[in-house]
Nucleic acid binder design. Structure first.
Lengths: 235, 235
DNA sequence: ATTGTTAATTGGTCATACTATTTTACCACT
DNA sequence: AGTGGTAAAATAGTATGACCAATTAACAAT
C-alpha cells in the first residue's frame, strides 16, 4: 500500500482549521467575538451554512462558544474541553513516550490492583489469558483486555480511563501493527503470556512490589521490540 | 442561585443526541449505514441542514464517519476518538479518585523529573514559586503552573498531557473552588509553598526517591483537606 | 436613575436548487 | 466467464434566499 487515500477536505473543515489556527496563534484571544456568520461567509467566500458547520465543529472541539442572538466567542483555553485529544490529533505521540508512560502508569496500576483486586476481576483476567492462548495474538484484543481489567481492578476510574486512552493512542500508531506482526513471527507470544501469568500470581498473593516490577519489566520488553523494529527499518 | 439556566438546546443537538443514544444502546451497530440525510430529515421532521449539522457533530465526536456519495456509517467504538472525554462529560470523576490518580502520576513525574530536569525549567519553577507567594492563592494559577512544569520536566509529552488533563478535570469540579477558599482561610498556603520548595530542592539534588515521596505527601494533604470539607458540609 | 418599548443585530431553521462523488447496473468486447 | 467502460441512480457537498427567535442596544417614558 504505497498510495495514500486522497481525503477530500470539506469546506467547513478548511474554515474551521483557519479559525483554529488564528486562535492558537493568538490573533484571536479568549473572550473576543468573531465576526457574524454572514460577515464570515462574505469574507471567506463561502455560504453561510458552511460557516455554520465550521462553527459547530469548533464549538464541539471546545474552541468557541455560540451565544444565540449575541455572537460567537473564543473560549478561554482553560475552559476548553478535551484539550488532550486536540493535541494528540495534531502531533501524535512518539511510540517510546507512550511505552514509557504506560510503564509508569500501568506499573502503578499493578501495585494498586494487588491490594484491591477481588475474586471477580481475578477470574476475568484468567479468562483473558485463556482467550489469548487461543487467539494467537491475532489482533491482540485479549492482551488489551487483560491490561484494562488490571486498570479496573485499581478501583480508580480516572486511572482506568487514562489506561484506556493510552491503549487507544497505541492502536492508532502504525508502529503498533508492526509490533503485533513481529510478535507472531518471533513467538514473543509466549513471553507475554508468561508475564501475564506471573503478574496474575503476584496479584493473588497481594504482592504489590512484585506486581509492579513485573509490569515494568513487561513494558521494557515492548520497548526492546520497538528498537528491533526501527533497527530493521534502517537496515 | 436556585435557578438553572435554561439552555436552549438547538435542534441539531437533539438530533445528534438521539442518534448517539441509538448507538450506545446497540440499536445501531458498528459498520451500519444510517439512512440518507434527506430520509433522516423527513423522519425527524427537521430540515436537511439541521441533519447535516448533527452529523458533523457526531463525526467530530468520533461516533460516525461520513463518506461522500456513499453514506454515513457508525464507527467501531475502538476507533472512536477521545472516548476519554466523552466518559468524563457523562459522569465526572470523584474528587478522591482524581487526587489519588494525581498522587500516583505526579509522584512518578517527580521521580522522573529529578533525573532529567534541566536548568531552564528549574529556573521557571523557581519563578512559579515566587509568583505564588505574591498571588496569595487567588486562583492558584501559579500552583498549577508549578505542577505542569514538573510534568514537562519529565521530557515525556504523554505524561505532560495527562497531567494537564488531570488539572483541567479538577478545575471543573465544584469541590476545587471550595478547596481554594479553604486554603486562604486556614493559611494552608504556606504548607503548600513549603512542599513546593522542598520538592525543588530534591530536584536540584537529583534525588528521585525523595522527590516522589514529597509529591505523594503533598497530595495526601489535598486529600485531608477534602475530608475537612465534606465533614463541614455534613455537620 | 429605573423601567418599558422599539429597533437593530445575530444566530437558528427551513426550503429548494444545483454540484460532486460514489456506487450500482448494464452492456460491449474479449 | 471475465474484463473494462459507460450511463444512471444514490448520496453527500455547497449555495441562495427567506423567515423565525433570541439578544442587545438605543431611546422614550416615568
Amino acid at each position: 500500500m504505497l498510495l495514500k487515500a486522497v481525503r477530500s477536505q470539506r469546506r467547513f473543515e478548511q474554515v474551521a482549521e483557519q479559525i483554529s489556527k488564528l486562535i492558537s496563534k493568538g490573533k484571536l484571544k479568549a473572550g473576543m467575538r468573531l465576526p457574524p456568520e454572514r460577515e464570515l461567509a462574505k469574507q471567506l467566500k463561502v455560504s453561510r451554512p458552511t460557516v455554520r458547520e465550521a462553527m459547530i465543529a469548533l464549538e464541539i472541539t471546545g474552541l468557541v462558544e455560540v451565544r444565540v442572538g449575541s455572537g460567537i466567542y473564543v473560549l478561554d483555553s482553560s475552559k476548553q474541553k478535551n484539550k488532550i485529544s486536540n493535541k494528540i490529533a495534531d502531533i501524535g505521540h512518539g511510540p517510546l513516550e507512550l511505552i514509557e508512560a504506560r510503564k509508569e502508569i500501568e506499573g502503578t496500576n499493578a501495585a494498586m490492583a494487588a491490594q484491591r483486586i477481588d475474586a471477580k476481576i481475578l477470574k476475568k483476567m484468567e479468562k483473558a489469558i485463556d482467550k489469548m492462548v487461543k487467539e494467537d495474538m491475532s489482533g491482540s484484543n485479549a492482551d488489551r483486555e487483560f491490561h484494562l481489567l488490571l486498570a479496573k481492578a485499581t478501583g480508580n476510574r480516572v486511572l482506568e480511563n487514562i489506561t484506556d486512552y493510552l491503549w487507544q493512542q497505541q492502536q492508532h500508531s502504525p508502529m503498533w501493527k508492526k509490533l503485533i506482526e513481529l510478535m507472531k513471527e518471533k513467538k514473543l507470544h509466549n513471553v507475554i503470556l508468561d508475564d501475564h501469568r506471573n503478574l496474575l500470581e503476584s496479584l493473588r498473593n497481594k504482592d504489590s512490589e512484585q506486581a509492579q516490577k513485573i509490569m515494568r519489566n513487561h513494558l521494557n520488553h515492548a520497548r526492546d521490540i520497538y528498537f528491533d523494529i526501527i533497527d530493521d527499518d534502517e537496515a
